[in-house]
Design a protein around this nucleic acid. Structure first.
Lengths: 341, 341
DNA sequence: CGTTTTTCCGTAAACGTTTACGACAACACA
DNA sequence: TGTGTTGTCGTAAACGTTTACGGAAAAACG
């Protein structure tokens, strides 16, 4: 039913070799025959079968994006990733590459799904999200020699793969700066308890800025919680009950901030009035919350496009000049001042 | 580098045919040989190459999900789809099927991307989202005889494909019911202006309920706008300036509701006090907005799983008994009463 | 023991491409 | 005219599977 290159060749009284060469723009084919082939292809509605192509060329022309919802993240749904995916997909599409999305079950170990993609050669490369500080997915891919790039940094694997991250450290630093400038000295930090790397980066920036301002780091003002609303709700009272109450909190995650604000409300503490609140990664939720939450916003769609470029540049089949390979980029966040601080 | 079935066969001193049969669980292979093959496969870390498989079997074992961001929908990002995708992907994964995500550029015509998937046989079936009332994607797929399912109903194509939708009509009806029960008689309806089918369904329910309550439908209380925040912001004043002001508004979209509330605020009208507001499709945004918006909530993740099942049941390769094919399902929404009405 | 059935396995074709290689004709050049 | 070059095309192998077919050995049966 679907027309193959054989049909086309038969219809033109020509060999399949010539047809293929004509379609692929090779030099050794007569201009007039090429014309005839192209016309016939259009008329018979011929497009090359991707499976045949993949098999022969050893490349599937598709990239896998591995997204792992955090455990306990049901209805919420990571508004973070759609814009990123949009950008990633847009750039890949320009190179006629498909995007395959592989999610783990929330909380489940993703390694197995990854192996399947790699071993059955379902994709030519993968993009990792939710990078852990020590990430066995990275170890595995490095060892397997399978091309990949990561959204977020990791300590695993060295500088051998392209990675694009947000500058959490600088954001943590700037958040403290801003709060200190507004007179705060007791500043709490709340971050996810998982091994997610950005939690560490954020805290580094937080500590550095405090030190710079000559403020002692109080461990009682730092708390880790589950990376969702319940986590923020649960852990926020902990810092509020420290003997010398903080006058500001920096949340390292929007969902945790939302939960934290709920806890604050129940304690009769009003963000924006009784306490200053800043969120490190902005999402639409921060904007519509009341009070609207001051937050640091990344440019997700451009980041998606950029990571696609970085990945492609590292692939032999797409690589430009050797020198253009970019292995590591850290993008700034933009402060969106709203009402909560 | 990657081991093929030939390596495995050579290593075992056996023919590739037998190896393949052993791995695929066919009956005509000795139990002991099968054991040896399986062990060797594990030892040599062998997995069948998907391209080779696809070519031979004429099936790629992947499903394409076509998602088209609405024009002008940048930073916002459709929180609607991630839970749905999660469910879809989860069920597909159980059948060892991959999910390929194809997005159009926001606003761009998606037909071309769809053709590419179909003609190059990159997927075995597609799932359509953002279904239009008259949807040429459906016409195309029907004519091409390519299997597909849709999230959302359409008038195109008849009852020949599985579709799963939310009961917008009932939601519109119930919203009116609820408002009337609370004493409202001037109820406005704001919906997207595009040809998106759910806008029509919603309005049908809205009209039906009004009629049932003996309330005349006032065209001045119905307005169409762009399906984003700006659209809601722009169009809401229009219904508010009708000579006999509405005391309630039903928004057919969360983003439009947010924009509408902004417009209301600027007119000094407070949702939940001066006017009642109900949103037809709930998202996290509705919950965190202030006042929290009363809304009708779908079960997106189960819907994703369900649509996967329906699609699979319609595919010859996966079909159960002939009678089990489900072509059309409409799922209820759950009212989440909050502060805005 | 002879015949039939069953069990198991190897052979080879097929899926739809791409591409290395060689062949042939046309042409240029001396 | 003979030789070398260039342009164009056909042939066939290869990518890694699955599977229809047939054959040999083993088992079952009389």
């Amino acid at each position: 039913m679907a027309s193959s290159i054989h049909d086309l060749a038969r219809h033109l009284n020509i060999s399949i070799g010539t047809v293929s060469r004509a379609l692929n723009g090779r030099a050794d084919v007569n201009a007039e025959t090429r014309q005839r082939v192209l016309e016939a292809a259009r008329k018979l509605n011929y497009s090359p079968n991707q499976s045949g192509r993949s098999l022969r060329q050893g490349a599937t022309r598709s990239i896998a994006f591995m997204l792992q919802p955090h455990p306990g993240d049901q209805q919420y749904g990571e508004p973070f990733f759609i814009p990123f995916l949009t950008g990633l997909q847009a750039r890949l599409a320009e190179y006629d590459l498909d995007l395959m999305v592989v999610m783990g079950e929330p909380g489940q170990y993703q390694q197995e799904r990854l192996r399947r993609v790699v071993e059955t050669r379902r994709a030519d490369a993968v993009v990792l999200a939710n990078t852990r500080r020590e990430d066995d997915r990275i170890d595995y891919l490095s060892k397997a020699g399978f091309p990949f790039a990561t959204l977020g940094r990791s300590q695993s694997g060295g500088d051998t793969y392209p990675s694009l991250d947000i500058d959490f450290e600088k954001a943590g630093d700037e958040a403290v700066d801003r709060l200190v400038a507004r007179g705060h000295r007791r500043i709490a930090a709340i971050r996810p308890s998982l091994d997610l790397n950005f939690g560490y980066l954020f805290l580094d920036g937080y500590r550095k800025a405090l030190k710079r301002h000559g403020i002692e780091v109080d461990p009682g003002l730092i708390a880790d919680g589950f990376i969702n609303e319940a986590g923020g709700y649960q852990v926020t009272p902990r810092v509020m009950l420290s003997k010398d109450r903080p006058t500001a909190i920096i949340f390292n995650n929007d969902a945790m901030a939302l939960g934290g604000c709920k806890a604050l409300a129940e304690m009769g503490i009003r963000p924006g009035h009784d306490i200053a609140v800043i969120v490190i990664v902005d999402t639409p939720l921060c904007r519509y919350f009341s009070p609207a939450l001051t937050a640091f916003r990344p440019s997700l769609e451009p980041m998606g496009r950029r990571l696609a470029e970085m990945l492609l540049a590292s692939l032999p089949a797409f690589a430009g000049p050797e020198g253009t390979r970019i292995m590591r980029e850290v993008w700034p966040l933009e402060l969106v001042a709203r009402e909560s601080d």
